[in-house]
Amino acid sequence: MKIAIASGKGGTGKTTVAVNLYYFLSKEFNNQVRLIDCDVEEPNDMLFFHGAELNESRDVFTPVPKIDTTKCTFCKKCSEWCEFNAISIVKALKFAEVNNDLCHSCGACSMTCAFDAITEHPQPLGNISSYDPGFGAGVVEGRLEIGSALQTKLIKEVKKSVNTSDEVLLFDAPPGTSCPVVETVSDADYIVLVTEPTPFGLHDLKLTVDLVRELGIPFGVLVNKTGAGNNDVFDYLTEHHIDILGTIPYSKNYASTYSKGELLDDINNEFSQHYQHVVQKVIQMYKN
């Protein structure tokens, strides 16, 4: 079963939920649960697994075209085919160049060139690492190369690297509703949306609900930091018949524990019960 944890905005507690679900689900599924951190620009899941052993780490590269101006006729066919406007051609100056920041490595330009003036060369995309935190099937993390804008491409590589024989795969998605989020959740069996009871939380939740409904994937909402805002989120969920998976109360002590990276070191009974409630719902879906 593939479960994605997503949120319309940053700061709602998506990482908190992802890490805790990994912890509690691992107990229920005999450690056959794997956590995949797809927030490749800011992968934070591993901050909470102290002493985790690194199993494997490898660099990932993406092919980027280069133009040989001694062969190029400056016909501009490659730039016309490029949907991302990554190629600049100035015939009068005999200038031809690829902007690596805009290139998406689709290969259209090299296929279009009839003069063999374009060749592809590997460019660092990021890194994929797998860890053993001492429980569960392990944690996989993608970390994007600084300055790269190809989050979606790295997320695809991260998902390809995952062992699909595990009982449950948890995908921690980036915040928002952009392409990296769509890539992360697109093949999920179920999506846990994390929100907070604030005007901003409700606004971005609505955007995320529209997205997952467009994708046609079943989902439910976990409301974090309850008691710190208003009831507008609950009114919206009730009005639109959206399943409320559970609530996590606002707590300064819990926030302090999170800020120190000690989320899993000492889970009190109150928060344990809240997550167990969500876990039982997930188990019920798994059985169905």
Rank of each mutant, 00 (worst) to 15 (best):
P122C: 12
G261E: 14
G147M: 06
V221R: 08
F200Q: 04
D243N: 13
V192W: 00
L154K: 03
V181L: 07
I248T: 03
V279M: 06
P175F: 01
Y286R: 13
K260G: 08
K153M: 08
I87V: 01
K252S: 06
Y275N: 11
D210T: 13
N85G: 05
F234S: 06
S165L: 02
I248S: 02
D116G: 07
K76V: 07
E239R: 10
N85T: 08
V182E: 01
Y258G: 12
P180W: 12
G126I: 07
C106H: 03
N85D: 13
C38Y: 05
V192Q: 00
K281L: 10
N55F: 06
E42K: 01
F48Q: 14
F171R: 10
F48I: 14
R34K: 15
N231W: 00
F200L: 12
V140G: 01
N127P: 00
L47W: 00
G176Y: 12
F115K: 09
P174Y: 00
G147N: 08
K260T: 15
N268A: 14
A92I: 04
D243V: 12
N99W: 04
A92T: 02
P249W: 11
C109L: 02
L169G: 05
V282H: 01
K27G: 09
E141H: 00
T119R: 02
L21A: 11
K9W: 03
D172N: 02
P43H: 13
I3E: 06
D189W: 01
F271G: 04
H104M: 12
D37R: 07
F24V: 15
D265T: 15
E42I: 02
S256C: 03
N253D: 14
K225M: 13
N100W: 03
I191L: 03
P133A: 09
